Computed example of a mutant assay.
Amino acid sequence: MPADVERERAKTPGGSTAAPRHRVRLDLPRPTRRRLLPAYDPEEFGRFSERIARFLGTGRFIVWMTVLIILWVLWNVFAPDSMRWDQYPFIFLTLMLSLQASYAAPLILLAQNRQDDRDRVTHEQDRKQNERSIADTEYLTREVASLRMNLGEVATRDWIRSELQDLLKELEERRDEGDAGPDR
């Protein structure tokens, strides 16, 4: 094949001679990638850590842990030498307790962080509710003040009675003046 024909075939529609690229379709989701780490649900893991932290903070855990340590020490002190798995300095017991503590501490911290997040949301909702309550109270205070001001202009029963009594006195005075007038 001549070199000119090969060059024409290698040209892309835009006229460049670069190798054609694979076009990415934007209307389709990307294929899932393989992960080295296992996938997990953070919410479920958080709930799991809260259950663990809740258990670690109970007297039941302390009792079981104490019983386990006492049995461990008694077995490794009084059992026959061939059946002991941890000799006197109890290095394996220390390792197990360190391992338990190294997992318990982050789980407790995770549970505390989740509780802090819940508390923050609750406080924010309480703050918004308090703002609404204050706004409602201020509105009602303005309405009551407006009603009091307008009640000052409303005729009450006692005010109408006193006005009618004043008018009655005034009419009696005019009648008395009319009777004592020049006709008599």
Results as ranks from 00 to 15, higher is better:
58 T>F: 01
135 A>Y: 01
100 Q>E: 01
48 F>S: 05
94 T>V: 03
181 G>M: 01
2 P>M: 05
18 A>V: 02
39 A>S: 13
43 E>V: 10
171 L>C: 07
171 L>I: 15
182 P>E: 10
146 S>W: 12
137 T>E: 14
174 R>T: 07
104 A>W: 02
69 I>Q: 05
182 P>L: 07
158 D>V: 09
60 R>I: 09
64 W>R: 10
178 G>P: 00
177 E>M: 11
135 A>M: 05
29 P>W: 00
105 A>R: 13
88 Y>M: 10
46 G>C: 08
107 L>G: 04
100 Q>R: 09
51 R>D: 02
30 R>L: 15
140 L>I: 11
171 L>Y: 11
183 D>T: 08
17 T>P: 00
134 I>N: 10
130 N>V: 00
131 E>G: 00
106 P>F: 05
25 R>Y: 10
176 D>I: 02
95 L>W: 04
177 E>D: 03
167 L>R: 15
177 E>L: 13
38 P>K: 07
165 Q>E: 12
155 A>T: 11
18 A>N: 14
148 R>M: 08
166 D>A: 12
118 R>F: 04
47 R>H: 09
52 I>V: 14
28 L>D: 00
46 G>I: 01
53 A>P: 03
150 N>H: 11
164 L>V: 15
181 G>Q: 03
33 R>Y: 02
93 L>V: 08
79 A>H: 02
81 D>P: 03
160 I>K: 12
70 I>G: 12
9 R>I: 15
150 N>W: 08
